[in-house]
């Protein structure tokens, strides 16, 4: 290791000490769909216990970014490390193992229409072979439903729930595996302002109770003000700007200002 690398290493190490242990590291991520270069060298490090929001216009590649993190999409180049492991180099069993530590709340909630709420929550437990005795499973489901404030919905079908309730059940399904990282894809989209605020508060409660780290994809500024400790602005496929909510709000950059108007 030469002198420059040693200094870089020390800087990185000090940075980690000050911010905590990195759980997700994204380095120079590139992803294109045909001639559309969505991600063009994006970088992000998520530290343990941190909530980072990725802000950007529609179609800027925010959802693509988090889909790459869980291996739903494969990047063209660059590196994604989750808990120190390179996602691309993992075999299916290892990837499934990593996925148990990363919860994913989909924009459309993605509740299984043909299953009850209970079966929806039970599904990941059953599929990942971590199902326990019936009583333990019942307790886990009840705990997850109580965490999201919907303890009496276990036997309902998703079609019987309102938009806000579906979102909460989506959070409950994500929480049931006790993930260390949660990826939220537009968690408040399509909700009225009051329900959106409730969901934002719920995200904060989950963060505090389980000490989870989160990446929140959104352009709902009122949600980000409540939940994000750091905001990364994704534009033209790169980190255009980065800072706290107040730092970005007071930025002189016209493009950054547009998001806060």
């Amino acid at each position: 290791m030469d002198y420059k690398e040693q200094i870089q290493d020390t800087v990185q190490s000090n940075l980690h000490k000050s911010k905590g242990v990195p759980v997700i590291e994204i380095v120079n991520l590139k992803k294109s769909f045909g001639n559309n270069h969505v991600l063009n060298g994006f970088n992000l490090t998520l530290y343990e216990g941190e909530n980072v929001a990725v802000l950007g216009k529609s179609g800027s590649g925010k959802s693509v970014l988090i889909k790459c993190i869980v291996g739903l999409l494969k990047q063209d180049s660059g590196e994604i490390r989750a808990f120190g492991k390179d996602i691309l180099s993992l075999n299916q069993a290892e990837l499934d193992q990593i996925r148990t530590k990363i919860g994913f709340l989909f924009q459309s909630n993605a509740l299984y229409d043909s299953m009850t709420v209970r079966e929806n929550l039970e599904f990941p437990l059953r599929r990942l072979s971590i199902i326990k005795t019936k009583d333990e499973v019942d307790d886990m489901i009840q705990e997850a439903l109580e965490n999201v404030g919907l303890p009496d919905t276990a036997n309902l079908m998703p079609s019987e729930l309102s938009g806000g309730m579906r979102k909460r059940i989506g959070v409950a399904r994500t929480l049931i595996l006790k993930p260390r990282v949660i990826l939220y894809d537009e968690p408040t989209t399509g909700l009225d302002p009051i329900t959106a605020k409730e969901i934002s508060t719920l995200m904060n409660t989950v963060h505090k109770k389980y000490n989870t780290s989160s990446i929140i994809i959104s352009h709902d500024m009122s949600c980000l003000k409540i939940v994000a400790q750091r905001i990364v602005l994704l534009m033209q496929g790169i980190n255009y700007a980065e800072g706290t909510y107040d730092e970005l709000k007071n930025s002189d950059d016209e493009k950054v200002k547009e998001f806060f108007e």
Binding site: L72, R99, L111, Y112
Partner: peptide, 11 residues
């Protein structure tokens, strides 16, 4: 509705 993706991330 991304249910297939949800299934994949559920292992």
């Amino acid at each position: 509705t991304e249910q297939i993706d949800a299934m994949e991330v559920s292992g």
